[in-house]
Design a binder for these strands. Structure first.
Lengths: 124, 124
DNA sequence: ATTAATTGATTACGCGTGTAATCTTAACTT
DNA sequence: AAGTTAAGATTACACGCGTAATCAATTAAT
C-alpha cells in the first residue's frame, strides 16, 4: 500500500476534488482551509508523484496532475489498517465507542441502518 | 490529545493488558508477536512516560508502569480524528466502504445491529 | 565488602515529515 | 532576441520515530 503522510493526503484530497489539476489549482483549493505556503504544496505534490500516488502530464510549463488511486480505494485500505490496529479488525467496537460517548446522531443511525439494509439485500 | 506513534501505542497496549506492569512484563507480553529488542521496548516505555501516557512508581530497582489514560478513551479520540480526516466526521461512509468491498461478515452486521439497538433504547 | 548483574537514563543515527528557500530552465513579454 | 517570470527540481533543516547501544547506578550475589 502506498503510505502517505497526513499533509500528503490532504493535498491528494484536493486533487481528488477535480482532476487533472494544475499545481495552481490545487493551491487555490487548499488556500481556503490551510495556511500552507505555495512552495510547501508543491513539495507535497512532488512527493506524491514520487510515491506513485499522482501522475502528471506536461502542459506548457505546468503539470496536470491526476491521482493514480481512487479515494474510496485509499480510504478503505486506511480504514482496514486503522481498525486492525485499534480494534483487532472488527468494526463494531469502533461504532460502539462512538455510541457510548454520544457521538452518534439520529442521522448517523439512519445512515447505518441503510448500510445494513443494503448489505442484507445484497446477501439475499 | 496525547499523540502516540504506532510503536508507542503497541507498547501501551501491552500495558493495558494488565497493570501496574514492570518493563520485563511488558517485554514478555510483546515477545510473542513482535521482534523487538528489549532496549527498544524500554525506549518506548520512556517515551510514553515523557508524553504523559504512562506513570510509574519505583519498586526496588524496577518501575511499575500504569497507563494514565483508558484504552477506550484513547481509541475514541483516535477514531474521531481518523473519521474526521477521511470521512468528514461521518461514520456511515466508513462502514459503507467496508460493506461495498465485502469486508463485513454476518457477525459484524449482527454486532452493528446490536449497537444501533442499544443506542435507540438509550434514546427512548 | 567487592563484584556482578540488571535497570533505567542517556546517547546515537538514519529516515520521514513539515515547512520552505534557492536553483534552473522553459515560456511569456516587450 | 533578450529579459523577466514562473513552474518544477533540488536543497535545507529541525524534529519525531524506529531501533538500539552504551552509561550509570543500585541491587543482588559471593
Amino acid at each position: 500500500m502506498i503510505e502517505l503522510s497526513k499533509a500528503e493526503f490532504e493535498v491528494l484530497d484536493a486533487v481528488w476534488l477535480g482532476y487533472p489539476a494544475t499545481a495552481s489549482e490545487v493551491i487555490a483549493r487548499l488556500s481556503d482551509n490551510k495556511e500552507w505556503h505555495e512552495k510547501t504544496i508543491k513539495t507535497l505534490l512532488s512527493r506524491l508523484v514520487k510515491k506513485g500516488a499522482l501522475s502528471f502530464e506536461k502542459q506548457g510549463r505546468q503539470y496536470n496532475y491526476t491521482p493514480c488511486i481512487a479515494r474510496e480505494e485509499y480510504t478503505l485500505k486506511e480504514s482496514q489498517s486503522f481498525i486492525e490496529r485499534f480494534f483487532n479488525g472488527r468494526i463494531a467496537p469502533l461504532v460502539s465507542g462512538f455510541a457510548k460517548s454520544e457521538q452518534l446522531s439520529q442521522h448517523d443511525i439512519d445512515e447505518l441502518k441503510k448500510v445494513i439494509d443494503d448489505w442484507e439485500k445484497q446477501q439475499k
